[in-house]
Amino acid sequence: MYTLTIEDNTYFCQPDETVLDTLLRENIAISYACKKGTCHSCIVCSPDILPPEAAQTGLKNTQKKHNYFLACLCHPERDMVIKLPDQSELYTDGTVVANELLNRNTLLLIIAFKDAFEFNAGQFVNLQRSDGLTRSYSIANIPQESNSLEFHIRRLPNGRFSEWLHDEIKIGDTIAVSEPRGHCFYLPERSEQGLLLVGTGTGLAPLAGILTDALAQGHSGPIYLFHGSRDVEDLYRIDEMRQLVDQHENFHYIPCLSGNHVPEGFSHGRVNDIVLASLPDLKGWRVFLCGHPDMIKQMKTMTFIKGAASADIYTDAFLVTSG
């Protein structure tokens, strides 16, 4: 009989029980539905040890890599420490070392830490103000660079948190940062595979991290980055991306503008339409979609219909918290 440890409590998993059975018997609040590995409602994490392979059936490779598993499919093979999705998070204080505008409404914020901050490029963290106000932001750099995290913060109308970051935060200030989360990141496998990166607005942040990571890990397949917005003033990092195009033969950068004023060197139209017209066959491609939820919802379906396997489509939808 193995033990399951959650925070400070230990439970016994009976020989014929799954982890979900034990947690339900012990009245632990855990979401679940189908109890047969289909709905993924009861996904939990084993931070310290690899869970049994059978308990990871059907999960994305990036979830497997971080030891996520389905409680309903897990018959423990040893004692386990389990982390529930809504378990309180550990916050680390970081120091603001850079804050400058990337364009008229997007702030580059860099937060440095004393020790190395472990994450995968493309994941997100929660930033927390001293009064407890919390928002999620994607990490835009890769872990190898330094003990710091880079963020792209778009100023939202009446957005309390983004206005605070834009208007009040100074270099030297302290911000609490959660552990990294999310499954939208690059894994160094099948390096000859085509990579399609599509982002709107600050959706470029996780994609920039994923792109840097893929190039640093020697991804050899074609990499296409489509960055969309209405006006050219709302894009950013244009010159840097063009520089990368000059340095990497397999990298292609297509900035897209849906507004009426379209300077030379930019594609005119909605980023969705431009992607689908440019790459009609996505069979075998790995797809990363970051930014506006409507764009992601549509592109998830369209890239799948165009041939990308559902397991190869990674998304990070930016949900706007009101106020």
């Binding site: 189908c34 047969k36 289909t38 709905c39 993924h40 059907g58 919802k297 998830k300 379906t301 799948f304 219909i305 041939g307 559902s310 489509i313």
Partner: peptide, 27 residues
């Protein structure tokens, strides 16, 4: 992929999340 590409029936899937739906299709 066939179902979503089929104009006779794909309107029934307009408002569903593709990932959740794929799990249901498996069941």
């Amino acid at each position: 992929r066939k179902v979503l590409s089929d104009h006779r029936i794909n309107r029934f899937f307009d408002n569903v999340d593709m990932e959740k739906q794929a799990a249901k299709q498996k069941a």
